[in-house]
Simulated scan of single mutants.
Amino acid sequence: MANDPLRLVVFDCDGTLVDSQHAIAHCMDHAFAAHDLDCPGLEKTRTIIGLSLPEAIRKLAAPGMLDDAVIEGVTAAYKAAFFELRQTPDFYEPLFPGVREMLAALDTRNWLLGVATGKARRGLDAVLARNELEGRFVTLQTCDNHPSKPHPSMLHAAMDETGVDAPNAVIIGDTAYDIEMGRAAGMLSIGVSWGYHDIETLNNAGAHAVIDHFDQLPGLLETMWGTGRDAA
């Protein structure tokens, strides 16, 4: 309707839209091994997905073990490993079930869509291109220009770019970092149960709700925003 306020739905990428855990863990182990450091492995790496790369590396290493120069070296080794992995014929970083259908359902409501991710812009662009999602999002916020989650800078920028106020915006993510970022920005924060932090962690971080499948999202947002409109 003409008088309806603009609404903005911002998505995390890794663990929310795409299942990238195995690729991330592989490259993280490679980067640590390249600097003679103990490899963190999949389960430990899952806990830091969503943070910017230097912050993630600091959390994975033993306290006080890495100085800035080593962190910079591990970061560069990770980026090189991921670039190389992305060129392999069997590279696999699939969308989670229901992503395309959910985006189409939100489009019917004329809600603005965005992404806020700890990925670099080059990595996000590669994900969107591979999955033919270019042009689906009106604002793309990455770690290149912002502090790491849970700092709310990315969400503030997304709202500034779209002209949407915090009460009319929501962040959808799979980690406590996403939920905490949303709350710090004054936005609704919705967790997803299929990602890399468990439901208890999401709830403890202050999630307003947690969904088990993307087909639950449009109706939940209608309820939270009180729009009361049926799906088209």
Rank of each mutant, 00 (worst) to 15 (best):
P147K: 12
D36S: 13
H30V: 14
A23W: 04
C13L: 06
R136T: 08
H146T: 05
A69N: 08
F91I: 09
G41H: 01
D125E: 15
C13W: 10
H208F: 04
S153M: 02
L37R: 13
S148G: 01
P63S: 06
W194T: 03
H156V: 10
D67K: 12
P40W: 09
L51R: 12
L202E: 10
P40F: 08
F11P: 00
L124D: 05
T139Q: 07
M1G: 13
L188N: 08
L128Y: 06
R109N: 04
P40V: 09
H35A: 12
I48H: 11
L37A: 13
E180Q: 15
L8Y: 10
D68Y: 11
T47L: 15
T201V: 13
L53F: 14
F11T: 01
N131D: 15
E93T: 03
V9Y: 01
T88Y: 04
D230T: 12
V164N: 14
N203M: 11
C39A: 15
Q21M: 09
L51N: 13
I190Q: 14
H213D: 12
P94V: 04
P94W: 00
P89A: 12
F32S: 02
P147D: 09
A176Y: 03
V18D: 04
D29V: 00
V127R: 04
M181Y: 03
K59T: 02
E200S: 05
A81L: 11
V138Q: 15
D12T: 05
C143P: 01
E93C: 13
T223S: 15
P94C: 03
E222Y: 08
I171S: 10
A81Q: 08
L6Q: 02
A184P: 10
V99Q: 02
P89W: 04
E161G: 03
D90W: 06
G226L: 11
I71S: 01
L53H: 13
A34T: 04
A33D: 05
T139N: 06
P152Y: 00
W111T: 14
C13G: 00
T162W: 13
T45K: 05
M154E: 07
G135F: 08
G206L: 04
E180K: 12
G186W: 12
T201H: 01
G123V: 04
I199K: 02
G50C: 13
N3Q: 14
G173L: 10
F214H: 10
L155D: 00
F32G: 02
C143R: 07
G73E: 06
